[in-house]
Amino acid sequence: MRKDGRQVERLQLPFRVAFHISMQSVRIRFWRSVITAAGTVLGIAFLVSVLTAMMIQRNSGAVTDPSERYRMTWLVIMSLLVCLVGITNAMLMSVTERYKEIGTMKCLGAYDIFIVELFFIESALVGFIASVIGWFLGVFAVVLIKLFSEGFKVFGWISPGEVLLYLIYSIVIGTLLSVIATIIPAQVAARMPAAAALRVEV
């Protein structure tokens, strides 16, 4: 095969197949996925709640303290970083749980990059769904609180366009956050030797 030049065929994992496997993986390991998603949901909910609160305050004509803005930005960034660590932790657990599956895939011919791809697609999927949920929770919570304190005039201070824009922010930031958090776990997974498939837990 190799004596006459290096004519090694490339093995492949079509995106469609990878997506299907990742999707099934999220579905079947539902509770594990919920734990991973929780980090993103909370982080995005906090980000959106801050944005929505600021929007309502601005539209209500109240004077905003510029230093308040910096403080909130700082808080949001910190909370997102904490979420990042949380997702990484949950994903690392998930990788160690799946050593046998990863080893088996490698025995069937998977390149390291296939494993990385599967984990990235999976985390992007979870991140996407979690972002949408987080966005909804963030908006919902702030509107509810303001409704109690300010009454129905709150609805006049909400700009729907801006709230929808937050959805896009959420999806971009949440999905990215989830994927970035998976870089280290995916590397750990990819470095798993094929022989891990043979390990027997006693």
Binding site: L11, I28, K100, G103, T104, C107, L108, G109, L198, V200
Partner: peptide
């Protein structure tokens, strides 16, 4: 690494004690 993966894919078939089907 890539040539090894190719060998595992095309030349060798593996059967395990714990079956190791991909659960999903």
């Amino acid at each position: 690494a890539q040539e090894l993966a190719f060998l595992r894919c095309r030349t060798i078939g593996y059967i395990f004690q714990t079956f190791n089907l991909i659960p999903v």
